[in-house]
């Protein structure tokens, strides 16, 4: 039995303890009345007239954050902390994924779902792991719904796909209302309070990285991640598009994204592309890397490599 698995157990125990603490907090908190009128009405009006994120003053953002926290309280009965974490100076994030390491466990997927408060039980998953045929990189031969007893399956390799944080993002160009844009740290974010839900960005994305809230997101209260960020994992409304944002709530504080932390194989390498001594720069300089659909001119900041 390898240590690799004992580490996973450790993580699941931690997960369990975290969930238990969350449940405790939820029970301790007083049940908020979801009544119409009063602060609910004020919040609805406030949301309706809320400006674009990039045009709001600090006070307006503080008001918006108050509404977000109150809405989470009403909807999930959880006290979340929503911050407006700014991008760091001289940082542009990049990701490198070692496909000779990836075993197709999908631990990254489930960690992402929990970390980013994704709708459970619908199809809201930012990462999709493709089971590929050895000897081929044709995505049309990939299997998305593989579910064998154990992975890796002989004759297959695994290719996780998520938002590539393109440097020339076609989704940003497509949005008719500028509800999505690239931040100075290279992350393509969405203002969930500005998006009109036309889904043109989903059409424009060549990586199937954008996802739509077809219904009101449903998350058990005890599973809510209370550490949230405005342009990140705060609870989203129905009818808007969302996507991987490299865990802004973590990475802008210097922490690793949840998928990197969850990966038991060490296949995921995250870091600052502007730092010549960073791990990711070493990978780009020393490994033979490729990017998905590079020929489309999207300039992804997500690389794949092999040992």
């Amino acid at each position: 039995m390898s240590n690799l698995q004992s580490e996973t157990i450790d993580q699941s125990r931690r997960r369990f303890l975290g969930a238990a603490a969350g449940a405790g907090a939820a029970v301790a908190g007083t049940a908020a009345a979801p009544a119409w009128g009063g602060s609910t009405l004020m919040d609805t009006m406030g949301s309706f007239f809320q400006n674009h994120y990039q045009r709001m003053s600090d006070e307006e953002i503080a008001d918006a954050i108050g509404r977000i926290e109150r809405r989470a309280k009403r909807r999930y009965d959880v006290d979340i902390i929503c911050r407006d974490q700014p991008p760091q100076e001289d940082v542009v994030f990049g990701y490198a994924l070692n496909i000779s390491k990836c075993q197709g466990y999908r631990d990254c997927v489930s960690a992402c779902v929990r970390e980013n408060n994704l709708d459970r039980g619908s199809q809201m998953e930012y990462i999709r792991v493709l089971e590929m045929e050895e000897g081929s990189r044709n995505l049309e031969h990939s299997e998305h719904y593989y579910d064998p007893d154990t992975v890796p399956v002989e004759g297959k390799y695994y290719l996780p796909v998520q938002c590539m944080q393109c440097d020339n993002p076609p989704c940003v160009k497509a949005c008719p209302v500028e509800a999505t844009w690239m931040e100075p740290d290279g992350i393509v974010v969405v203002d969930y309070d500005w998006c009109i839900g036309c889904r043109y960005c989903m059409t424009a994305c060549p990586y199937q990285a954008r996802h739509f809230n077809w219904r009101e997101p449903q998350i058990p209260s005890e599973d809510i991640n209370r550490n949230t960020n405005y342009l990140g994992n705060r609870p989203r409304p129905r009818g808007v598009v969302e996507k991987c944002h490299f865990c802004t709530q973590r990475t802008r504080e210097g922490r690793q994204p949840a998928c990197q932390e969850a990966c038991p194989t060490g296949a995921r390498i995250f870091g600052n592309l502007l730092d010549p001594s960073s791990e990711i720069r070493y990978v780009l300089a020393n490994k033979k890397v490729f990017r998905l659909k590079e020929e489309l001119g999207t300039e992804p900041k997500f690389w794949y490599f092999t040992d």
Partner: peptide, 13 residues
């Protein structure tokens, strides 16, 4: 050693 993967992607509710 091979191990069980997490479940496959969901379908839109």
């Amino acid at each position: 050693r091979p191990r069980a993967p997490e479940g496959p992607p969901g379908i839109r509710a």
